[in-house]
């Protein structure tokens, strides 16, 4: 395989890993605080739609991003009200949010644009462009003429949208927040033993809402990335299970930020390979593309089965907090 081809696959890995990473970190905040979130998919989807729709109508991708984040946060609040305020079942709430998003996005798209539940194609100034880092080549021919190091710089490191760099920056930031700040200490505590937090005089509800809202913001950015950076507009079901792959990555990473990055890059790589090659020839064996698509899910089942290390979720995860006498 040619060096440049490998670079192109890795470049595409980074692009495809970005929404996974943002959603995965979203899930990390929420679940570390003890609120399961299987509604990552729905929040991403609704953000993808509003980001594209508002970017299209306003002409500004940044306004679109804000709209996407706002929409995602509305669903996050809903999840908070159901699972924190009213102590409902967090899983059922997540399921409801996924369907609500899938339905509403298409219904509103149809009402606003009447194009069968999609937004119009976004013009380039209503999308996130690729940033060419100083000294990098941006044309295919230019890159092809560079040496290997230059190719790595131009193809892999340079030329992504700002959201890619933002997502990558979120990893150390999340680590820092979690392990180096008061907020992080309290967040981890409330996911492990909310009673300890409550008796220390800190609001369990407040902390959990904060975590759920952060998850809303990150899912919003992830969704906006899908429709305004990775592609040019919203189409029905465009999140395509990425919320669940992000959830899978989160379990794979055992709820830790740096591992989340690795897991998302791995799953992004599967996706990139699957996109580039329909079937992969491994000697006598042909690996069908469907197997590559299913691989993240299969890996998660293997991890959950405890075949490669045990994934222990935050101990208070999934349980609404009820004060005891």
């Amino acid at each position: 395989m040619e060096f440049l081809t490998i670079l192109q696959i890795l470049d595409s890995t980074v692009r495809l890993a970005t929404p996974l990473l943002l959603a995965c970190l979203a899930g990390l905040y929420s679940e570390r605080a003890g609120v399961f979130d299987i509604g990552l998919e729905g929040k991403m989807l609704v953000a993808a739609f509003f980001a594209a729709a508002i970017a299209y109508t306003s002409g500004s991708v940044w306004v679109g991003l804000l709209a996407g984040v706002a929409a995602s946060m509305v669903l996050a609040v809903l999840h908070g009200i159901a699972s924190i305020t009213f102590r409902g079942n967090q899983l059922i709430s997540g399921v409801a949010i996924n369907f609500l998003a899938a339905g509403l996005a298409v219904v509103i798209a149809q009402t606003w644009f009447a194009q069968g539940g999609r937004t119009p194609q976004l013009p380039s100034d209503a999308r996130f462009g690729n940033i060419v880092l100083p000294g990098a080549e941006s044309t295919i021919r230019g890159i092809a003429q560079q040496g290997p190091l230059g190719q790595v710089y131009s193809e892999l490191i340079s030329g992504h949208s700002i959201l890619v760099y933002l997502a990558l920056a979120m990893v150390p930031l999340t680590w820092w927040v979690l392990y180096r700040t008061r907020f992080g200490l309290r967040l981890r505590a409330v996911g492990e033993n909310p009673a300890a937090v409550d008796t220390a005089g800190i609001s369990v509800v407040g902390l959990r809402f904060a975590a759920v809202m952060i998850a809303g913001v990150l899912c919003g950015i992830a969704g906006a990335y899908l429709s305004t950076a990775l592609s040019a507009g919203f189409v029905k079901d465009m999140s395509a299970g990425r919320g669940f792959i992000a959830l899978a990555a989160l379990i794979f990473a055992k709820w830790r930020p740096w591992y989340a990055l690795s897991a998302c890059l791995l799953f992004g790589f599967f996706d990139a390979v699957g996109n580039r090659y329909q079937n992969i020839q491994l000697g006598e064996f042909v690996v069908p593309v469907q197997f590559m698509q299913a691989l993240p899910y299969i890996l998660v089942v293997i991890v959950l089965a405890g075949l490669v290390g045990k994934a222990i979720p935050p101990r208070a995860g999934g349980e609404p907090y009820v004060k005891e006498r």
């Binding site: 809903l78 009200i81 159901a82 699972s83 009213f86 102590r87 409902g88 079942n89 967090q90 059922i92 709430s93 399921v95 409801a96 949010i97 996924n98 369907f99 609500l100 998003a101 899938a102 339905g103 509403l104 996005a105 298409v106 219904v107 798209a109 149809q110 009402t111 009447a114 539940g117 029905k236």
Partner: peptide, 25 residues
């Protein structure tokens, strides 16, 4: 035609939300 068929999915979601997650409300 202004109402997409996905309206059913919205209703389904709201039924799950109200009968399931918001039961306590």
């Amino acid at each position: 035609p202004a109402i997409s068929r996905e309206m059913i999915v919205v209703i389904q979601a709201l039924v799950i939300l109200f009968t399931g997650a918001l039961d306590n409300m």
